[in-house]
Design a binder for these strands. Sequence first.
RNA 1: GGCGGUAUAGCCAAGUGGUAAGGCACGGGUCUGCAAAACCCUUAUCCCCCGGUUCGAAUCCGGGUACCGCCUCCA
Length: 464
Amino acid sequence: MAIHIYNSLTNKKEPFQPIDPDRITMYVCGPTVYNYIHIGNARPAIVFDAVRRYLSYRGYNVYYVSNFTDVDDKIIKAAQEMNEEVPTLANRFIDTYLEDIESLGVEKADLHPRATETVEEMVEFIEQLIAKGFAYESNGDVYYRTKKFKEYGKLSSQSVGDLQMGARIEIGEQKEDPMDFTLWKKAKENEIAWDSPWGEGRPGWHIECSAMVKKYMGDTIDIHAGGQDLKFPHHENEIAQTEALTGKPMAHYWMHNGYININNEKMSKSLGNFVLVHDMIQQHDPEVIRFFMMQAHYRNPINFDNDLLESARAGLERLRSTLENVKHRRSESVNGGSSAGQEAAERAKARFLEEMDDDFNTANAISVLFDLAREANKYMQQPQTSIASLDAIVETMTDMGSVLGVSLEREEVMLDEDIEKLLEERVAARKNKNFARADEIRDQLENDGILLEDTPQGTRWKRK
RNA sequence: GGCGGUAUAGCCAAGUGGUAAGGCACGGGUCUGCAAAACCCUUAUCCCCCGGUUCGAAUCCGGGUACCGCCUCCA
């Protein structure tokens, strides 16, 4: 089966047909950098990172671009409040953004263009829109003439007439129509600004993505992705700008991830009910956070709370523990022998591909991982295990984990000498059937956060 | 008001026509010196409600209810 992607433009799952099979172009709308990101902001970074990893795993060469909006009203406001220059503030939060998503297992994009590096292209873009009659200057501002673009609203399946009810004209704006949106914004005094044919000013939010995609990726790209809340107006406006200019579709597939809720309400900066990634990773293993997200389908909303994370942690722990046991068992295994483990691994891999091909169903992909873990554990109850089978299981589990961006390896932790000694003492005590002492040591180690497991292959330990 | 989404076990969550995945938690059992881990069994005669189509529906159609989101900055 070919990869199928749910396309927000058509509201259907469609077979994925790349423009150039040797180079997939994928653009994900990045953050406006004026603050630390919250976990909701991290969701698109994570889920589309998984999409990217899967496409690569399937043999595609993916050119992945994600922008930074490093100038806009919110940044200017934040910079004023903190008595900082706009670029200084933006740079600072670009750095923290990159750190935060890296900790969540997100690989860097091939390119992270910044709006302020693309102003020249934006100005040209706007000039051409004016020349084509899709934009007009008004008192130093430039607006997009929404009514002129006949397909306006096709992404969010809204008609211009319906949208009009909610549209507003801000004080000081002189739009022909309330639905028109800003392409170029005249600078106020002492504001960061660039020269343009319409005087000093700065670009509107929507034009940057259109200009950057065109500059770095071309007129039409394969996949354009972002959060659900960008569908309207942001992506709708991008389509209007780009397609009015080029006459070609901006992207073949539009993907939108669902929200993260807190107590069933959308997490957002304006509601104030957000959890910063920066804070969250102090309390939770970032891999657990990612694993938790991967257990839901990317288009569905997910609720966030500590109990749910704890449940995800327990599940991930089970997978890690299985993998570690399989590896450990290798030293006591034989060449040849039963290939049951190998067969289980092959079946799992086939199912994994099937699930991921179906619009990146990571929730089902993880269930495959759990099924394989069960089969692996069962297999290991056999008195004799084959090296080839164990290796196949390890490789398959590790690969599937890395496509999801979740490492199933347990961190290597060194034990200090005292603990080593206690372990040795306990082995001796058990040999001599001095179980009282053995249990005493076990309890003591548990207090130090070390859990012991006595297996037929010897005593094992792990961190709590 | 317009547009869109969601409703599946105690909790989380897949599943779009063929008779309910997976995880967490709970209970019983096996294994163990005892544990832990693991495995086995059990846990939704049923998928928000009411009609309809069909040999057959959680899945399709009609109607209703509830919750959420977008229509204004927002991942």
